[in-house]
Computed example of a mutant assay.
Amino acid sequence: MHRRYDIDALRALAFALLILYHCAMLYVADWGWHLKSSHLSETLQLPMLFMNRWRMDLIFLISGLSVHFLLRNGSLGRFVAQRSWRLLLPLTFGCLLIVPIQPYAQGVANGLVEPGFIDFLIRYYRFQPWPKDAFDGWEYGFTWNHLWYLAYLWVYTLVFAALLPWFRNAWGRRLYGAIASLRGWALIALPAVPLAIGSILLQPHFEETGDLIHDWYRHAIYFTVFLYGYWLGNDAGLWRELVRLRRRTLVLALGLFGVYLAMLKLLPEDVSDPVQYTLWATRSLYIWAALCAILGWSHHLLNRPLRWLPWATEAVYPWYVLHQSLIVSIAYWILPLKFGPLAEPVIVLFGTLAGCFVLHEIIRRVPPLRPLFGLKARRAKVEWPAVVPTAMPAVDLA
């Protein structure tokens, strides 16, 4: 089988965007985060809102695509075991050794944790509650912060594995056939309907907690797009249609975002249920139109052996694990130094990129470190053949 370069490239670009997004969280006004700079910008709210509504949906959709490809090359049991190893080991390692600098910095900044990182770790590893609002996750005694994605993806993998026999029976094949036959406006609009229904039914009752157990609204959205990725899989007809519709979906996504933004700005905070449901339905249509545009344009532009792609494909997982702790630790040290509104974000961004690059170069060369950051234990030389448009790879995407 032949490798789908566009999916590898899209995965790398999606996580690169995540790093940029988290750097910007230091500076966007009125949005809470672990640390905040004194140089806050309301202007940043617009591009951040534009990305916020679909950035994690895209990542979970790519994860669903990876499941489709991986299941073509082995048994379900082996797939679950391998995915569990590659998700739970970095999650556990990251929570214990990579993430703790984040609650420490946040707790010190909030005045609820005494300075001294070693003393903090001794207390942190007791896994007992901290003073209220010391840091995100204080009530549990620890936090996984940005690594929540790994926990959610592991649970979705198990749920998917349990449902797979049902997806493969006669009813499931009919459902897949119906999805694969979507064309034109049906492909643009119908998959947004479950997203809208999930929002209307669940968002009023479940806050976006990030604690896995009580996060049912986000589960409904993320697991749905995860399944969309699996069903999208290797259907050449669907991919051709996404490419054909790419200009239309781009214009539609931009227009829907404009409508959604106008509703947010012009409507009062307390609106009637029908108006609120309309707002959420518009947001769901925007999310799916944006995903269709991204998939169509990436398949059109990126499905070729780009020179940077083999390195980026390997770098994604370690960079993801490392990046937010680097952002927070760099910010913790430089925010009190009062750099200017230009120099400070430049130092944070380039310091994060440099730290990720250097640490990844070390990790990839030290065999015991590789699995701790989601890399395969043995590094294999990547040799990608020429693209055959109707063929799909066995690609491993987190």
Rank of each mutant, 00 (worst) to 15 (best):
P115D: 11
P367L: 11
L88I: 10
L49K: 09
R218Q: 05
W166K: 03
T249C: 09
C95K: 00
D119F: 08
F69G: 13
R283N: 00
P389L: 06
H299L: 15
W154K: 05
G137W: 02
Y5P: 00
A398C: 13
V366C: 14
R218Y: 02
Y286G: 00
Y230T: 03
M1A: 13
W239H: 15
E114P: 06
Y176H: 12
L163Y: 07
P191K: 11
H39P: 00
A394Q: 14
G355I: 00
A162W: 07
I200G: 00
R365H: 15
R72E: 14
Y27K: 03
A109I: 07
P129K: 06
H214A: 02
F117E: 03
I221T: 11
T224D: 12
A312C: 11
K36Q: 14
I98F: 01
H68T: 04
L44P: 08
A394D: 13
R247K: 11
H22L: 04
L71K: 13
R240N: 14
I347L: 15
P336S: 08
P191G: 14
V243K: 06
I221M: 08
P100Y: 02
R304F: 13
W85C: 08
I19T: 09
G32S: 13
P310I: 10
G107N: 05
L91F: 15
W311F: 15
C95H: 01
Q128L: 15
Y228I: 13
L195W: 04
L147N: 01
P341W: 04
L158W: 09
I327F: 11
Y152W: 04
L150C: 07
N110Y: 03
L44Y: 10
T157K: 03
W33L: 10
V80F: 10
L337N: 09
R240P: 01
P393L: 11
R307M: 12
Y230L: 15
P371E: 12
G141Q: 00
L264K: 12
W166D: 01
D273Q: 11
A178S: 13
L121V: 01
A170R: 11
E269D: 15
E361F: 09
L375N: 00
L163W: 11
L13C: 11
V395T: 14
A262C: 04
P165V: 09
L266T: 15
Y27W: 06
Y152H: 02
I334Y: 00
F223G: 05
A178T: 07
I179E: 05
W130S: 04
F350G: 10
W297E: 13
G94I: 03
M263G: 07
G141R: 00
